[in-house]
Design a protein around this nucleic acid. Structure first.
Lengths: 141, 141
DNA sequence: TATTTTAGTTACCCAAGGTAACTAAATGAT
DNA sequence: ATCATTTAGTTACCTTGGGTAACTAAAATA
């Protein structure tokens, strides 16, 4: 199966471009959406928790969160540990989640339209396997 | 199948990082590899041909090719149309193609190891379908 | 021959992320 | 209790990678 990665990578730009286009309506980008999605599904979180979960560095999350706070999509809540910055979705953020989630789901539906359900499932489940294999081989080295 | 795109996108960074790591041995990045790959499979080409094929803008290809010329991986040949810059792989370029191709194939083999052949095939064939669907819906708009 | 199109380059801009060095707060060890 | 270490977050700086607009030179077309 030579060329799997090539095909995989070739699809990245069209997809991310389309998604960013979709999100630009709401003043956000896909990378910021990741944070919104995280907060919706995991609840209020610290920046370190978000960074760890999505395997990016802390400064990356600082930047994303700063933008989202400017937009009024997330807000800080206070905890005991004064080092931590705990953030959660605002009401505006909850609304944006809903409409964007709907848009993404509809987009997914359209672009997977002609792909049988069992094939989607297989492709869907391959991604974490490859991710796992990549991590394993990093450990071996 | 909510979340297909999310999984797809989450895998991008690990994969591209691993590939760039692999290619750094030879002083190139994945985006430059695309050009090498193109020249190997399509033969000597103009910048416009490469740009069109991979759906990127001309300045992007100008930059990639410039870097590859500096590295002695590609060279310019002369054609009738003096506007065009026709480039091809040098001997060095051919060698780099071989070793990198081998490395990529081995990497692919390792990270697809525990995935049955028929599943790989399905996932492999889904990518161009999604790409096509994305392009269709862009046309509709 | 004059106009338009095409190939490529240049300059400028943006998104996205990483690393290193730092501050402030919390933990742990003596 | 105090001193050293770890942890959370920020800041500054750098790198990749690509897009847009404006431009030059050459070719095609009217």
């Amino acid at each position: 199966m030579e060329g799997y990665l090539q095909r995989f990578l070739a699809l990245y730009r069209p997809v991310i471009t389309r998604l960013n286009e979709l999100m630009s309506t709401y003043g956000i980008t896909y990378s910021q959406w990741i944070v919104i999605y995280h907060l919706k599904h995991r609840g209020a979180s610290t920046l370190v928790e978000i960074a760890a979960r999505h395997e990016v560095e802390k400064p990356t999350i600082t930047r994303r969160v700063k933008k989202l706070m400017d937009l009024g999509i997330v807000e800080q809540i206070l905890g005991n540990d004064k080092r931590e910055k705990i953030i959660q979705l605002t009401d505006i953020g909850e609304n944006i989640y809903r409409v964007v989630r709907k848009d993404i789901t509809e987009l997914e539906f359209r672009i997977m339209d002609n792909i049988p359900e069992h094939e989607r499932k297989i492709a869907y489940e391959i991604f974490p396997k490859i991710d796992g294999n990549l991590k394993n081989e990093k450990e071996l080295h």
